[in-house]
Design a protein around this nucleic acid. Structure first.
Lengths: 167, 167
DNA sequence: ATAAGTGCAAAGAATTTGCATAGCG
DNA sequence: CGCTATGCAAATTCTTTGCACTTAT
């Protein structure tokens, strides 16, 4: 299966306010602040990784991030990638996805919740947002008294393009 | 995290028609038919595993199934468990779940689609069905032309009981 | 200076595979 | 009997860890 997964649909030109430390702030800054404020140091390796995560418009796995990071500075090790990812996850700065049964993929946390459409043919990952999911949260809350902290929705199938090509 | 995950909500007393090879038929029979018709043999190990999968009212991982199976007949190996699971998955007789970030869990395919509420406190897995998800399929179809073949929704949070206990 | 962070290589966990043999059809 | 499925142990894949060394602060 193709490893080159491309986020096709979430607009890249998301507005970036300057002041607030909200989710709308650029990922790198937000992450740096968060880590610093928790007493972590900002090493060159972390800096590069934050960059890579911010700019890779895709859902990458640890090794993918490693390859990209090492292109900027090869003094980085896979362990550091894993350790950084785990740190970022602990601080809720990235999401860990279990997309296509395989190993983990990661993405910077964005302002809006969104979910994933994985094409089983070309491997592309589209993102998809919508208020429908809010209903799910509410239903679960009211019918079950279940308090949702994280919701993961992953849809596999065939994207429009591949359907056409297959026809 | 607790390994004892219990399906609490899908009714156990699901009606079982005798004749049709539909999803309403008991899992073991359905699976046996399907495998046989595809030229696979019915070994003692497979028989036991089908039994275990049908009766374990929980979402078990490969090792869990292995332990239960081995209790019935210890001439079974973990490789066989994996090979059987992969066979069943290939024939669409079971679902493979990526529940709580960890390794894979498996469950017999049932008539009705359902999703999972995993309590991060006690580890229990509730099942949850509802037409809301059908909407999601439709939206994705109409807005994106994306043809859904599999949809996985996993919700983590705190179950009603644990919320009370925590209070 | 000094504690947090790193690289490396080795350990771990989950899963797969090669090969000789057992056993279904 | 012939071919599929099994057991076992070794190989793979992804991820974590121990330890001596670097490096931010």
């Amino acid at each position: 299966m193709t490893q080159t997964t491309i986020a096709e649909t979430v607009p890249k030109n998301r507005r970036r306010r300057r002041s607030a430390r909200s989710l709308d702030e650029p990922f790198r800054e937000r992450a740096r602040d968060a880590l610093r404020s928790e007493g972590h140091r900002m090493t060159q390796q972390r800096d590069i990784l934050l960059n890579v995560i911010e700019n890779a418009g895709a859902h990458l796995d640890a090794d993918g991030l490693y390859q990209l990071a090492r292109r900027q500075d090869n003094r980085i090790s896979l362990s550091t990638v894993y350790r950084t990812l785990s740190l970022l996850k602990r601080h809720n700065l990235i999401d860990e996805l279990h997309l296509s049964e395989e190993h983990h993929h990661y993405e910077a946390k964005t302002a809006e919740e969104h979910y994933h459409l994985v094409c089983i043919d070309c491997g592309a990952v589209e993102e998809f947002a919508g208020g429908i999911i809010e209903h799910v949260r509410e239903v679960v809350k009211h019918e079950r008294g279940f308090h949702v902290t994280s919701l993961q929705l992953d849809i596999a199938g065939m994207c429009a393009r591949c359907q056409k090509e297959a026809a």
